[in-house]
């Protein structure tokens, strides 16, 4: 398949992962694999910032690449970290002259058989969420067309990751909302049940439920659920204060 067609195919495949069964690691692995297949690079790796801060290796086109990326994190120096911190592309056309910049990382990369590196930020407007590392077995400049294509792929992946995070956040909030409403509803139902069994008004029934939950160090909603499903016997509820 010609390069342009492969590239177009990759964009389609990346977009395709946005639908159901979305998996971040799968998306990013597709990205690193295609960088190697479509662009003129020896290996590709990708790091994302974790929710608690700090970068994590998310995808690598080979095991050697993964080891090198882990080393970069451990040494806290290297092109991926620089691209992430600055939000700008970082290039080293000859790693043998980069020992001043990344003394430990440059040696490790050369040992793994790589002569040059290009790191691209994963960025959307102000937010930098990670970086893509592209390694070459030869020295020299990467073709601008390849850099542009890699950055475009990284941009699409960035949007996918951010959308996925927003969707997850929405799901958590919606579950919290439903949980809060369920708790409130079950408390109202338990109030009704206690009011009927003990011949109290709703206010007194609520007081009885609340004192029981306090005296037994239980959450009000759990006591209410117990009343509804019969595991908390209504006569056991402490007497309400006289009206």
């Amino acid at each position: 398949m010609p390069r342009e067609a492969m590239l177009a195919r990759t964009f389609v495949d990346l977009a395709d992962t946005l639908v159901a069964d979305f998996d971040v690691v799968e998306l990013l692995t597709l990205l690193t694999d295609r960088c190697v297949e479509v662009l003129d690079v020896g290996a590709a790796g990708l790091m994302l910032v974790a929710p608690e801060g700090g970068l994590r290796v998310m995808a690598s086109s080979s095991e050697a690449m993964r080891v090198l990326e882990l080393f970069e994190l451990q040494a806290q120096e290297g092109p991926c970290l620089d691209a992430f911190r600055t939000g700008l592309p970082v290039v080293a056309q000859d790693l043998s002259t980069a020992s001043g910049r990344w003394p430990r990382f440059a040696a490790e990369a050369l040992g793994a058989g790589f002569q040059s590196v290009q790191a691209l930020p994963m960025r959307l407007r102000g937010a930098v969420i990670g970086a893509l590392n592209l390694f070459h077995v030869d020295r020299g400049e990467m073709r601008q067309a390849d850099i542009d294509a890699a950055q475009a792929l990284a941009d699409v992946a960035t949007i996918a990751v951010l959308q996925h995070r927003a969707a997850l956040e929405a799901q958590v909030l919606n579950e919290q909302l439903n949980h809060a409403l369920n708790s409130r509803i079950v408390i109202e139902q338990a109030k009704g049940m206690v009011a009927e069994r003990r011949e109290l008004d709703m206010e007194e029934a609520f007081t009885a439920l609340r004192s029981y939950s306090r005296n037994h160090s239980l959450r009000l909603a759990d006591v209410a659920r117990g009343v509804i499903d019969g595991t908390v016997a209504v006569p056991e509820l402490d007497s309400a204060p006289p009206a």
């Binding site: 809060a180 409130r184 509803i185 338990a190 009704g192 049940m193 009011a195 009927e196 709703m202």
Partner: peptide, 30 residues
């Protein structure tokens, strides 16, 4: 909102039919 609670802003002006649920509790006992 605090954990396990409905946000006050959502509660204000809302109608989640609490009276219906109170009545359901009473009728369940009846």
């Amino acid at each position: 909102a605090p954990a396990g609670r409905l946000a006050g802003e959502l509660e204000a002006g809302s109608d989640f039919h609490y009276v219906v649920h109170q009545a359901a509790g009473m009728v369940a006992a009846q």
